[in-house]
Amino acid sequence: MLLSVENITVHYSRLPALRNVSVEVDEGEIVCIVGPNGAGKSTTLLSISGVLNPTSGEIIFDGQKINGMNPETVARAGISQVPEGRHVFTTLNVEENLRIGTTIRNDRAEIEKDFKRVLETFPVLAERRKQSAGKLSGGEQQMLVIGRALLTNPRIMTIDEPSLGLAPNLVDRVYETLTELRRDRGLTLLIVEQSSERALKSADRLYVLRSGEMQLEGNTADLQDGEKVRQAYFGFEEGTPQEGGVTF
């Protein structure tokens, strides 16, 4: 197992945000964590990346315990993080933004190779190499952040809501790129996503989180009809009357 989160409990001051949550990601897999707002999805990723420290449980990456490490150390260990909300460096240009990803590396020749590869993967970034990143569109910024994360040469990439605030066709494009990256480079991905439909389409395995507790875990191939996921996601049987008529 490349990454295993074992029974972690996380508190925001005294308020529990996660209770005994476990997630496992194997080498080369695409794993999605889905769930409604406030389920604890981002909390899970923030715990993995070292921003939050679980009150109990362990996070093991490649045989090494990583909970308690700070975010920079976790990034250096090989877990690259794409935080929620397209964090580009707005006053730096596209190339400088990408270069930031390489500051933790010292293998010059490999860096240049990877740099070219990223520009090939994202031709739009190559075109706008000298433009300030603040002037890119939302989709381009998401590509830039993913490109930057790739340049840290990660063993696993964690992405928090890559579709947030993007037009549907751009979301398709982002997911296409992610699945291509897995296919071409064997990149391992742990993605947090609100839409379970999207997760069922793109991931190998899926976890459903609600109210800080894990509701369901399984191969997406076995869950394609969506019924189980729906129940886990909303926490009620279909047909139960609901105010507001939530559509799924």
Partner: peptide
């Protein structure tokens, strides 16, 4: 590269840390 890394933290501290700065 140190100057560049520092400027990245000026723009966005969270993202800079996430990139290993």
């Amino acid at each position: 590269k140190w100057g560049l890394a520092l400027r990245s933290s000026r723009d966005d501290e969270v993202a800079a840390k996430a990139a290993g700065v």
